[in-house]
Amino acid sequence: MTTTMTPPHRSATAGARRGAERGGWRRGRAPRRGRGPSRRKEALWGYAFIAPTGLGIAVFYLWPVLQTAYFSLTEWGAFGGHTWTGLDNYRRLSSDPEVGRALVNTLTYTGLGLLSIPLAIGFAVLLNRKGMRFVGFYRTLFFLPVVTMPVAIAMVWRWLYNGDYGLINYLLSLIGIDGPNWVADPATALYALVVVGVWSSVGYNLIIFLAGLQAIPKEYYEAAAIDGAGPFRQFFSVTLPLLSPTAFFVSVVSVIGSLQLFDLVYVMAGSGAGARANPAFPRLETVVQLFYDRAFVTNDRGYAAAIVMMLLLVIVVLTAVQFRFQKRWVHYA
């Protein structure tokens, strides 16, 4: 807050002063030790500072990934102890119909889940308007689902969606519509899930877009207004292009998140092995759900490792594609 309040010229001078001091420090030592060693020393300090985090990532993320890659080439039972089976798990993966349908479901969910981006932009623009009252209240309201546990969200929505006693079907019955069993009907289950997913992620995306909106300089709008652009023209010609880097970030993050969907399905489809008794299960099964079943229910952990390696590949490819196509639509101001 204080930095944005400081008049620009003062912070600029402060920066220049800091720069001079830094230069002075360099100059004072440069003649004696030379630039090379000092730079190396600086780099060394840099590594020292990121070491705690780096080590954490190496131990808790990279090492497990490598281990999983290794285990995906083995047959691994319930309690450890594995035998090398080469590419057997991957061969089985390519012909397993359950993997295919889990992938289709997951990708459909991910694609539809992107709907939360236009929604979040819309709400962010509305909440960013000048003279809006109770802004803090609305922002809290939208953010609430983000700080609520996904399991709690899923439990509540499960009841809302209940075919006979749910609030949604009760409201529909008031206007004479006989609603389906939302999460038990193969025709509606996945879409019912998408609604919950979008609903619970809009708040988070909204906050990021609000930050993006506030970074757009007012001068652009003034200039656009002078040129005769109305609010809609301003939105499409100024706001949207300048918000595109934020949208890109949100899209990358939410695609990765959606591809790992598990908790919502696990709770909403019916808990544990019970989910398989849900007639809509073939339309709800996600890749991570399948991984969970293989790893923790049927004790087929080597195969489970192969499933997550496949998911890792899908995530890498989809993220790479997004980075490649960002040039077409992302404008960095």
Partner: peptide
């Protein structure tokens, strides 16, 4: 039916 028993 199974759908009803899944919901409740």
């Amino acid at each position: 039916d199974l759908k009803t028993m899944t919901d409740t």
